[in-house]
Design a binder for these strands. Structure first.
Length: 460
RNA sequence: GGCCCCAUCAUCUAAUGGUUAGGAUUCCAGAUUUUCAUUCUGGCCAUAGGGGUUCGAAUCCCCUUGGGGUCACCA
């Protein structure tokens, strides 16, 4: 069975890069009828934040990712880590180190001065004398002193690290007894039965340390997939300054989860020329072994295009529901279908769509100056009056085509071009020169409102 | 700086060692639309540089350059 996990540290919200690795882990687990677990890495109590975990779950819920089992909090697993640290102590694979932070600091400075790699000097590795008084010990694990460690990575291939270059006897438990990251990650992944670790490639250089832990404890080493980072326009790691990095911000901005997930799955992964992936297609096709080796730049232009695509292909019922979040209530509107059919073709985001709906439903309070100058001519009032009269005489106006009919009549009796009536009418209805078809707008707001809006412009 | 990773259009990417280096987004032009948007058609744009290996290299090897990541009693 394939077991994957997403293991964020609770920093306040779900990051867009985190959502990507979560998605990939989720897809791979589901595709194999495996399990996708969620673990909150909160061993650093000074940064612990309850609400952050809830924020992550909320974001998962929004995009539709479901994790299996209960959420594991590392802060509630402390006794487990202590137990395994003790095991290593007992078997002589770890030891207590009484060096103070100050001594460590001094050692590092010396080493840097000599242009050496800062590194613990193993002074307590084989210590069995009496410990110095009043010192709390940290626990260090015995790392190999020579040779190399190879990470077999499904994305990067085999990556060989020279032990002398990167390792020392690193700390697995602090002086206050709390365990450190590289230790707990390995212990938890092993205990939770994780078989495939899919995570950002910023963790690649940590992996040898985790392998040291796996091996010391006799745990099997999982498969690793280190997914390249998402970069910003400057080519740096994505940060808050680069716009929306909080997943929930995308909801506020009017993106659909489908578009966002589709966008993220195509960063660093592809399947031929295919751009549109439903969740089912992702589940059928995604394989972490196909992930690209290189980083990709985060660029929302394609997300906009995808979002427009998904809006166009969403049912009106569903759109209605989604638009409520953006303050638009349409359930009881009798021309709902006409309205949504017209606007779903022309909106990149739900926010845009909501705005366009309001532009139609709410009578314009002012008329755009430039539009008046360009589209409201001397003869315009006469034409609008004629159109208003024709509207009053007409019977049974319901569909856009009914209104179009009336426009056609007026245009041919007055022997004018369509633009002569279209531009002033557009200003009357919308207050500006752009927008959906006039016949559609009139069908939505009805005859009375249309006449009122024409009057409002004439009286101006 | 040490170590590690990476390198195809502006961006996301495709190409069993043999293709006029393909698709998508953006951008530009045309068509459609009373307008704007949509849609459709077309166009611009790439193998970082230098050496090898090979009949043949985007693809394999080496070097250079550029970029990124990581080096804690953070995660």
């Amino acid at each position: 069975m394939i077991v994957t996990r997403f293991a964020p540290s609770p920093t306040g919200y779900l990051h867009i890069g985190g959502l990507r690795t979560a998605l990939l882990s989720y897809l791979w687990a589901r595709r194999n009828n495996g399990k996708f677990l969620l673990r909150i890495e909160d061993t650093d109590f000074s940064r612990n934040d309850e609400a952050a975990a809830r924020a992550i779950v909320e974001a998962f819920k929004w995009v539709g990712l479901e994790h299996d089992g209960t959420i594991e909090y590392q802060s509630s697993r402390l006794s487990i880590y202590q137990e395994y640290a003790q095991k290593l102590l007992d078997s002589g694979k770890a030891y207590k180190c009484y060096m103070s932070k100050e001594e460590l600091e001094a050692l590092r400075e010396e080493q840097s001065a000599r242009k050496e790699r800062p590194k613990y000097d193993n002074r307590y590795r084989d210590f069995n004398g009496t410990p110095p008084e009043g010192r709390e010990a940290v626990i260090r694990i015995k790392s190999p002193l020579s040779g190399s460690i190879t990470v077999h990575d499904g994305v990067k291939g085999d990556v060989v690290f020279n032990v002398e270059d990167i390792l020392d006897d690193f700390i697995i438990a602090r002086a206050d007894g709390t365990p450190t990251y590289n230790f707990v990650v390995a212990v938890d992944d092993a205990l939770m039965g994780v078989t495939d670790v899919i995570r950002g490639d910023d963790h690649l250089s940590n992996t040898p340390k985790q392998i040291v832990v796996y091996e010391a404890l006799g745990f099997p080493v999982p498969r690793f997939f280190h997914v390249p980072m998402i970069h910003n326009h400057e080519g740096k790691k994505l940060s808050k300054r680069d716009g929306a990095t909080d997943v929930m911000a995308y909801k506020t901005l009017g993106y659909t989860p489908e578009a966002l997930l589709n966008f993220l799955v195509r960063l660093g992964w592809s399947h031929g020329d295919q751009e549109i992936f439903s969740m089912k297609e992702m589940l059928d096709l995604f394989d972490p072994n196909d992930i690209n080796r290189s980083a990709s730049v985060y660029n929302v232009e394609k997300l906009d295009w995808l979002n427009a695509h998904y809006i166009k292909n969403t049912s009106n019922d569903k759109l209605c529901e989604l638009l409520e979040f953006h303050g638009v209530m349409l359930v009881s509107h009798d021309k709902r279908e006409i309205l949504l059919d017209a606007l779903k073709e022309r909106s990149k985001t739900l926010v845009e769509m909501a705005n366009q709906i309001n532009e139609i439903l709410v009578r314009p309070t002012e008329f755009d100056e430039a539009a008046l100058k360009k589209g409201y001519k001397e003869e315009s009032p006469m034409i609008l009056k004629a159109f208003a009269e024709a509207l009053k005489k007409a019977q049974e106006l319901h569909l856009p085509s009914d209104y179009h009919h009336v426009m056609d009549e007026v245009v041919s009796t007055l022997e004018i071009g369509f633009g002569k009536i279209g531009q002033p009418l557009r200003i009357a209805l919308m207050g500006k020169l752009s927008g959906p078809g006039l016949d559609t707008v009139m069908a939505i707001i009805g005859v009375n409102e249309t006449l009122e809006r024409i009057n409002a412009l004439l009286e101006k």
